[in-house]
Structures are given as structure tokens and as C-alpha cells.
């Protein structure tokens, strides 16, 4: 998924250069280790979706849309609505992305994003029931990756969260033995906002928001999701390398701090989008 053209020799040289720069606290694109690239969140970019957000993080660009259906609940959760998060890397996103069913990278991306939203209890699914055991709201959040330049995990998560915050879904009632649309809309029952913070580890040096070049040479990727109260709600290490145990606690500290800054950007964008 890190779809920058790869060559073993160029990667080696790039990595060497990155490590020289990191020793001075600098990065290949001029950022400091704990700086994000410019984050832009455009709310309501897709009018036909019940909620949507276009997120630009450096050159990485993703769009998320919310759609709603009324369905039977899952048999093991008759008293809860349904929430499904799915992300796909489209062939428009890079020369190395191919059409077809999602590969393991896209599946991991969807599942880690879903985990953050679900574990934080962002959407109160118990409030999305029309008739218990019979009819519930089914909320689909689909993400299309439009351009890849690293850190799809954060960009996707921010798009999903912003689209959910922005969503106005049609209201249904159960009357005379059937489910009817009322013509009114309502916001989703939101009870928490999770913020994802992703880092790359290059020889046990952590940098946030890795770009495509950095992802190409990193040892491991580390995503941590922080909720409104500063608690951890999801995490995932990716990549074929390893890291020193202490690095994980350092990453937790970084994630808790950085999440505050990102939370402000998203809250502000949602506020502007609503006005």
C-alpha cells in the first residue's frame, strides 16, 4: 500500500539519509519528528451521502461517505444498530494500486479504523434501534482512498470520524405494522470521538504521520487511537520489523499529546461544515 516506486538500492540510500537527518531531529521533507503534514478536512463534500468528509494529509487524500439502511439486527445483538466501516484503495490512488477485491493491506486498514470507532463507543448503537430484534439502523461508512502518500491509517480514520460527526440520517418510525420514513432527519447518537495517531519506527526512532518515502523504509508502523478522555482504545503494529519494548510506551505518550492537536482540527472543521 505504500505505493511509492520501490528499489532496494534507493531504499537503502534513502534510509541512510533519513537516519542522518533524524540524528539532528529533522526529516526528509523538512518536518520535525513529531510534526504532522498539513491536515485539511472538508465536511459534506458528497451531497448525496448522509454524511461525508474529504481528508487531505500532505499528498494523501481520502474521502468517506455515510449511507444508511433499515435492516434486521445481527442475531447476537438484537438491541443494537449496525455499523460497518470499509476502506478501499482505488486504482486512481497510485500507479501500483490495482482494481479488484481489497487485499490484505486494505483489509487491515478497514479493520483497524473500525476497531477505533467501535472500541471508543463513538456511535451509541443501542440508540439506533427501531423495533428491538426486528428493525435497526444500519450505518455504512465507506472510504475511498484517492491518492496515497503514506499514513492511510490516520487519513482514513479522520475521514470516517468526520463523516460520522457530520451525518444527518433519515428518521424512521414503526407504525401500523411497518417501518415508515418520517421525512425528518436526525444526527447520529455520538458519545465519543476517537483520534488515531500513527507513527513509523526507523531504527527505534519514532516519527508521526510518516509519508510514502518514510513508510517505504520504516521497520514498523504503530497506530494508537485515543478517546476524548485521553484513554487508549485501539492499537496495531504493522510492518516486517520490530521495536524495543520501551518504544511502545513512548508512542503512547506521543499519541495522547498529538491527539489533542488533531481533535481540534477535526472539531473545527465539523463546526464550520455545520454552519
Amino acid at each position: 500500500m505504500s505505493m511509492v516506486k520501490r528499489s532496494a538500492i534507493v531504499d537503502k540510500l534513502r534510509r541512510k539519509r533519513m537516519l542522518e537527518l533524524l540524528a539532528e531531529g529533522k526529516r526528509i521533507d523538512g518536518r520535525g519528528p513529531l510534526d504532522y503534514r498539513k491536515l485539511e478536512v472538508e465536511i459534506g463534500a458528497i451531497e448525496k451521502a448522509e454524511g461525508s468528509a474529504l481528508v487531505t494529509l500532505g499528498n494523501t487524500k481520502v474521502v468517506a461517505g455515510v449511507k444508511v439502511k433499515v435492516e434486521e439486527p445481527f442475531p447476537d445483538t438484537p438491541d443494537k444498530g449496525i455499523l460497518i466501516v470499509n476502506a478501499e484503495v482505488l486504482p486512481v490512488a497510485s500507479a501500483y494500486a490495482e482494481p479488484g477485491p481489497p487485499d490484505e493491506n486494505a483489509i487491515e486498514l478497514s479493520r483497524v479504523t473500525d476497531r477505533g470507532v467501535r472500541a471508543s463507543g463513538m456511535v451509541d448503537l443501542s440508540k439506533l434501534v427501531i423495533v428491538e430484534g426486528k428493525w435497526v439502523y444500519s450505518i455504512f461508512v465507506d472510504v475511498s482512498v484517492l491518492n496515497t502518500d503514506g499514513n492511510l491509517f490516520d487519513a482514513t480514520s479522520y475521514a470516517v470520524v468526520s463523516a460520522l460527526l457530520n451525518a444527518k440520517i433519515p428518521k424512521y418510525v414503526f407504525e401500523d405494522g411497518e417501518v415508515k420514513e418520517t421525512g425528518e432527519v436526525m444526527p447520529l447518537p455520538i458519545s465519543n470521538v476517537p483520534i488515531s495517531v500513527t507513527m513509523a519506527s526507523i531504527e527505534d526512532k519514532l516519527v508521526v504521520d510518516p509519508n510514502g518515502e518514510e513508510e517505504g523504509v520504516m521497520d514498523a508502523r504503530l497506530t494508537l487511537v485515543v478517546d476524548e478522555e485521553g484513554r487508549l482504545c485501539a492499537g496495531q503494529k504493522g510492518g516486517s520489523g520490530s521495536l524495543r519494548p520501551e518504544k511502545l510506551m513512548e508512542a503512547v505518550e506521543i499519541a495522547i499529546n498529538k491527539s489533542k492537536e488533531i481533535r481540534k482540527v477535526i472539531e473545527e472543521a465539523v463546526k464550520v461544515g455545520k454552519a
Binding site: 476497531r115 503494529k237 520490530s242 524495543r244
Partner: peptide, 26 residues
């Protein structure tokens, strides 16, 4: 973990933990 090299090779997490609980669990 690779026990002799003392390096983490897999980490996943789902649920809610404060930083203190997270550290204790880890």
C-alpha cells in the same frame, strides 16, 4: 516478543484502557 533480543514483533489492542492500565497490562 523476541525474548533474547528484547524486541516487540506483534502488538494489537482493542478496548478501553487508561495510560496507567495500559502500562500495567503491557
Amino acid at each position: 516478543i523476541m525474548p533474547n533480543l528484547n524486541r516487540v514483533t506483534l502488538f494489537q489492542f482493542e478496548g478501553i484502557l487508561t495510560k496507567e492500565e495500559f502500562e500495567k497490562a503491557y
